[in-house]
Design a protein around this nucleic acid. Structure first.
Lengths: 198, 198
DNA sequence: AACTTGACATACGCATTGTATCTGAATTTT
DNA sequence: AAAATTCAGATACAATGCGTATGTCAAGTT
């Protein structure tokens, strides 16, 4: 094999570790994941880990940022496909609910993330979900569709409700039938913010 | 000192450990708490811990059950002081928000609990908050005040929104001013469930 | 009073994290 | 191009903590 650039292989290794972190944290949880196993699974040692991410939590932060970013882009895509601005907000919310059914997302972003990294609104990734919701709320208030409430509070409530509903759906006896119930209830509750009922 | 009954001292020791667990888990978090230190702080050893609670998570479960129970009784008290049934539901919600400002509650029940013990709706303590909310929702639907939605879903959304809002308030730059915003937004959003606006 | 029980202590093995030091290949310097 | 320098990652080490296996002594039993 030809001589590789330094930076190139380093980025490759970072990507490998983040990928392995997703799998390990997503399946066994952050606390139960061994960094020895994790690094060995991609042909490295803990040396690479500590050099690249500082400590175990550093890797978690990187993994969270990646998953979080993917969630946000999927949410934006769903939002773009929806009708008016209100429909877009609902689409984002229901997309969050659906995404949180992925065990990896649940475990990493909803459970271990807040527990080990602190409140999502303070994450370096700025919790893209919250950010997207905030923007939507801002537009809706400006357009006179939503009542005048504190933007951060409303966004947090909507996001929190959606993601929490997802935890419920995922852990319910019959997720398939729980999902539409959660989506219905979410849409209904969100209408509390509307100026006029539809 | 007179000879103590066996069961008596055992219950005393259990209480001591749970109390120490509250302090340790609440201040340092579950993962960072050393069971050696914790048990020593009440004049015992890990032997007592493993005998009484099986393992570290066992103690967490006991602590969670205690805190959770206290929260529920405070919520019921607030509910009893409120006006009509709808006001009672709102009172419960805002009480949850206020209670979650207690660092111990936040850390133990909202962060470490779900992360290490799994979904609250499956806790042996049955998550008293959820239970209380469910009962309230059930009554309100029967009374025709709330729209017909799935009871579990609605309760989960309301509870989730309230507790999530509390996490936001607690971690915001200025909790004192954030609290009323959160309460306002919560009350407004909950009205989405109402049959007719008030 | 001898015996049994069991609540808790003691002692041990194993796993894991973080750090300090080392190494060799990629890059830079002369 | 050879020597010098960097630095990504490996190796080695120290510290801590969990869980278990075993021991012990007072409370309860017969």
């Amino acid at each position: 094999m030809a001589a590789r650039r330094r930076q190139e292989t380093m980025e490759e290794n970072r990507a490998k570790l983040i990928c392995a972190g997703r799998k390990a944290f997503g399946s066994q949880g952050f606390a139960a994941s061994s960094m020895d196993e994790l690094t060995a699974s991609v042909g490295l040692t803990r040396g690479a880990l500590y050099h690249n991410f500082g400590d175990k939590k550093g890797l978690l932060a990187a993994v969270v940022a990646q998953v979080d970013g993917e969630m946000a882009s999927r949410a934006r895509a769903a939002s773009a496909r929806a009708g008016d601005e209100w429909q877009q907000l609902l689409a984002e919310g229901t997309t969050y609910i659906a995404m949180a059914l992925d065990p990896e997302v649940r475990r990493i972003v909803l459970l271990d993330g807040p527990a080990f990294l602190g409140d999502p609104s303070h994450w370096p990734s700025q919790n893209a979900c919250l950010e997207a919701t905030k923007e939507a709320v801002e537009r809706l208030i400006a357009a006179g569709v939503m009542k005048r409430v504190d933007i951060d509070a409303a966004a947090r409530l909507l996001c929190g409700a959606a993601l929490n509903a997802a935890l419920w759906v995922a852990d319910s006896d019959d997720p398939q039938s729980a999902l539409p119930k959660a989506v219905d209830a979410f849409s209904l509750m969100a209408e509390g913010f509307l100026v006029e009922k539809r």
